[in-house]
Design a protein around this nucleic acid. Sequence first.
DNA 1: CAAGTTTACCCT
DNA 2: AGGGTAAA
Length: 436
Amino acid sequence: MPLARRPASRIRVIAHVDLDCFYVQVEQRRQPQLRGKPTAVIQYNSWKGGACIAVGYEARKCGVKRSMRGDAAKAVCPDLNLVQVPVLHEKADLSIYRDAGSEVVAVLSRVGKCERASIDEVYLDVTEAAKRLSSKDLSTLVSEEASTSHIVGLPQELGTKEWFCRPDASREDHLLACGAIIVADIRLAVLAETEFTCSAGVAHNKMLAKLSSGMHKPAQQTLVPSSAVESLLATLPISKIGKLGGKLGQELEGELGVKTVGDLLQFSEVKLQDMYGPNTGTWLWNTARGINGDEVQDRTLPKSHSSGKTFPGPRALKTLETVVYWLKELAETLQLRLDEDLSQNNRTAHLLTIHASCHIEGRATEAPKFSSKSRPLRYGVDKIVEDSRYLFERSLHEFCSHQSAGKEQSEITSSWAVTGLSLTASNIMAKPMVKT
DNA sequence: CAAGTTTACCCT
DNA sequence: AGGGTAAA
């Protein structure tokens, strides 16, 4: 839960930019003959034709869904073009999508502070740019793209451009209009310079920006004026709000009967704090009112790199040799990314963490996670393998002896199977200049 | 037997 | 530091 800090009173203009079915767009740029055709991206997996991880809009129209197996997708949409995610070291390699996302961030960052929220989503704070625009005559500045913006709760007799330029607008609405013009223009720049379309939400905070970016897709943008917030939230299912899509949202429904964000309004801040803790309680109380003070963080680079793989069912790893083999594969890909981070951003990671999901004595269980001690990760693949192997053996041994006290050592070591492995490099810091 | 791979962040 | 949740 984000820190439930009191929101700053200062008016902000925040955009949430979401690349439309991003992996598909990346593949369509690489293979232009796929443009306009039903296309989905699948992760390499020979079992039932792989798993769809991104589905283009033409393919969605004929019923293809994310998380379908490739075979099932082909069945509902025989003309479907399936593109495989590249494979490196026997693993899905997402680097082309990551790099494509970086291209987009490079364009967006020209108009404001950027926070990379995921591989295909960016928060953008355009407050300063909007203020600069606000003293000008908007009527000549509303581009074609800006005038196609959707405005939540727009009175029917008013068009978007009229709403933007109306002389009696509040300062809040006027700044939002300025922000929307800026966002529309930068979205066109993204298209011109990267060939990618994106959708955006523009509002006074991150929560509302995120909520609105998905309202009109693809390649469109949506504004949320403050005046529209109350009725927008009144009937909105809580699961649509970030962080309420999971367990917390279920608890809210089960314990308070809350189905919509509006239903939350009846509970006092103290009551919500009482039930869900001071932080979450205040956050919920604010969320019900469309209030959110989270700042857009100035961060375009990731805080960690990880490389992992699952080994479902019969493919579970049963010997130390295979575990070490896969640790090496994971270490290779991790090292490539660490090298790239060093050469491009002058950063080095200082913590290595291994996570193994295991079956022990036939029962599914999570093995404990272990980390190396703040050792700078610049020793190369062999060192990463050596460290992670040591950590794995140590944690497995401790876990087994705890689980099966009294058993013979040989019995213990023959009864585990690894169903998932991942290596994470974190504590990434700028490397001090080397003296020459 | 089987959606997989990443990333971030809260709680204790 | 480690466990857990959530999201795309």
